[in-house]
């Protein structure tokens, strides 16, 4: 597929010029920046605010239910920004609403995982959570060490790629517009949109002198992202069995997106 995309960039489809790709890039970057919860400048300001060992211990000693509630709340908040991002991608709102919902349900956590690298401090393996930077051990009360470490590992891998806002924006849009999500009614339309976004990403990488392998490295993260999303759903299902009432009190949007 990637080889085909490279060839496509040399022989663009008849309905897509370099100017089109640059317009797509510009509009998606704008949407991304308008819907990011924190600007890069905000994150730089927060970088040195770490949880103390005492604060970390206090969070570790919270109940699983309390910690799940906090995380569900933060994820729900972040999902609302992803919905806004999707709405501003040219062509997304032209899809039927059934497909818009399928794409968001299937792709919003993957987009959050990409966006997460802005909230990571790769120097000390911490993530911005609840106002300060937290280590993986901070989330012990969730009882999901494997999920947490997989998320951190992916985040560090994405940080190593040093994605620019432009690359992050286009990659997020491409992931959201995955035509292989089950039950899509207009898969071909989604496929065409994704193709253009990937071409725009390829063009942007070439223009900015990125290495040939950067796109391959970005795309190679997709299976890990998918497995993290599946693991999250497994953990949620197990949590729901053990604490049905707490799970029922999670934000309705969270339950809607991650319900079966």
């Amino acid at each position: 597929l990637l080889g085909r995309r490279r060839a496509l960039l040399d022989h663009l489809p008849y309905d897509c010029s370099i100017t089109d790709l640059e317009n797509i890039t510009q509009s998606i970057v704008k949407s991304h920046l308008e819907t990011c919860q924190y600007s890069s400048e905000d994150m730089k300001r927060f970088t040195w605010v770490q949880y103390s060992p005492e604060e970390t211990r206090a969070f570790q000693n919270k109940s699983a239910e309390w910690m799940w509630q906090q995380c569900a709340h933060h994820i729900t908040n972040a999902i609302q920004y992803v919905v806004e991002f999707a709405k501003r991608i040219a062509g997304f709102m032209d899809l039927c609403q059934n497909d818009q919902i399928i794409l968001l349900k299937a792709g919003c956590l993957e987009v959050l995982l990409i966006r997460m690298c802005r909230a990571l401090n790769s120097n000390n393996n911490t993530i911005f959570f609840h106002g300060k930077f937290a280590s993986p051990q901070f989330f012990k009360a969730l009882g999901c060490d494997d999920l947490v470490s997989a998320v951190f590992e992916l985040g560090m891998g994405l940080c190593r790629l040093q994605l620019s806002d432009e690359e992050m924006a286009l990659f997020s849009a491409a992931v959201l517009l995955s035509p292989d999500r089950p039950w899509l009614t207009e898969g071909q339309k989604v496929h065409k949109l994704q193709e253009k976004v990937y071409l725009a990403l390829q063009h942007s990488l070439q223009k900015n002198g990125a290495s040939e392998e950067k796109l391959d490295k970005m795309v190679s993260k997709l299976p890990i992202m998918k497995s993290i999303c599946n693991l999250h759903v497994d953990k949620l299902e197990f949590f729901r069995l053990v604490h049905p009432e707490t799970a029922y009190s999670f934000p309705p949007l969270y339950r809607e997106v991650f319900g079966s």
Partner: peptide, 20 residues
């Protein structure tokens, strides 16, 4: 539609998440 009423609402309304 009932199953995804919040997503429907978010997709339909024009407010930004900051205002929600």
């Amino acid at each position: 539609k009932e199953k995804h009423k919040i997503l429907h609402r978010l997709l339909q309304n024009s407010t930004s998440p900051v205002e929600l």
